[in-house]
């Protein structure tokens, strides 16, 4: 871990401003991913801006009938919130499917969106990786790719977005509220928040330099039955091979997003028209452009089967 200086931010705007003004600065909230990567020098910030003291840790109801979740609301608290459990069950289910109790106590709403990939080659600094070291090559495409993306990747990178929470947020049409160094605020639709790698896999989100996440907003509840089915090798404390976040209405219509399959939570709205006809109708369209490796092509039938399991549960 490279040496770094450290400050506690006084306000969101001040944090953003400091981040833009200080070379090599990064925000730190829960730190559960950033410190992990700093120990390997995959992240090497020269300056850390601790945002934990900012009062962004409440969940409020919005005028539109939804929720506004402060960026510093811990995963545990978000999952346990009575309103979330009642109206946005898919979100609670996704959060508690991720990591461990200890990590969820630290991890924040904003930080979780910033989680980086668990690609084994990204994690080994001796290996080529276009995400970690642009231009060095991708060791994963022809390497150990079992956990990696089957769709949305590029010739430069097939890393998977590893999180669960954002997959549920994607199906809930969440918005990511931010403040920029100049004080400007904006809301980025969750669909646009994570970027596909293209030629620049090191650029993972739509955030500008120094831009700070302040909240995530959820539109008013859409009802329906909520599911988050996470398939993994061991029963807990593991990343998804495939996950399905779904909301199924009584008439069989609904929404679905997939985790563990792409560089971002994967949702193809047009494919959801097929929900009432069964899983295959959805996945055939949602994964029409899939480009798997030999090691991870099982994720395609697995995604279909997992959605099938969810739909069967919804019918039961």
């Amino acid at each position: 871990m490279r040496p770094f200086t450290y400050e506690r931010a006084a306000s969101p705007a001040a944090a953003a401003k400091a981040a833009a003004a200080t070379p090599g600065a990064k925000f730190i909230a829960g730190g559960t991913n950033l410190l992990d990567l700093m120990k390997l020098e995959i992240e090497a910030p020269a300056h850390l801006i601790d945002v934990n003291g900012l009062k962004l840790d409440t969940i409020e109801e919005t005028d539109e009938g939804g929720l506004r979740i402060g960026a510093l609301v811990r995963n545990t608290d978000l999952a346990a919130d009575r309103r979330v459990r009642r109206d946005y069950g898919v979100l609670t289910r996704a959060i508690v499917a991720g990591a461990s109790g200890q990590l969820r106590n630290k991890a924040t709403t904003g930080g979780n969106l910033m989680q980086r990939t668990r690609c084994p080659y990204f994690y080994d600094p001796n290996m080529p990786c276009n995400k970690r070291k642009p231009g060095s090559g991708c060791a994963a495409i022809q390497g150990f790719s079992r956990s990696l993306a089957v769709i949305g990747g590029s010739e430069a990178c097939i890393a998977t977005y590893p999180g669960d929470m954002a997959v549920a947020m994607r199906v809930l049409d969440a918005g990511v509220e931010t403040v920029k160094p100049d004080g400007e605020t904006r809301t980025i639709p969750i669909a646009d928040f994570h970027r596909l790698p293209g030629d620049t896999p090191d650029v993972e989100t739509a955030l500008d330099p120094g831009e700070l996440i302040t909240a995530v907003t959820l539109p008013k509840p859409v009802g329906g039955a909520h599911f988050y089915h996470k398939v993994r090798d061991r029963a807990s404390y593991a990343f998804a091979l495939v996950s399905v976040a779904a909301i199924v209405q009584k008439d069989g219509s609904g929404r679905v997003a997939f985790g563990g399959v792409a560089p971002k939570p994967w949702r193809v709205e047009a494919a959801e028209a097929g929900m009432s006809q069964g899983a295959k109708a959805v996945t055939a369209q949602a994964f029409a452009d899939a480009n798997p490796t030999r090691e991870n092509r099982f994720k395609l039938p697995l995604a279909e089967r997992t959605l099938d399991a969810v739909l069967a549960q919804a019918r039961a």
Binding site: R118, P120, Y121, Y123, D124, M127, A139, Q142, G143, F144, R146, D233, R234, A235, S236, Y237, A238, F239
Partner: peptide, 24 residues
């Protein structure tokens, strides 16, 4: 997992080499 090009065990941490946990 052997990366047969580079000659090493690619999943070299406790997140990637999955041992059983309580839930299993």
């Amino acid at each position: 997992v052997v990366d047969k090009r580079f000659g090493f065990f690619a999943n070299h941490d406790l997140a990637q080499y999955e041992v059983m946990v309580h839930a299993d």
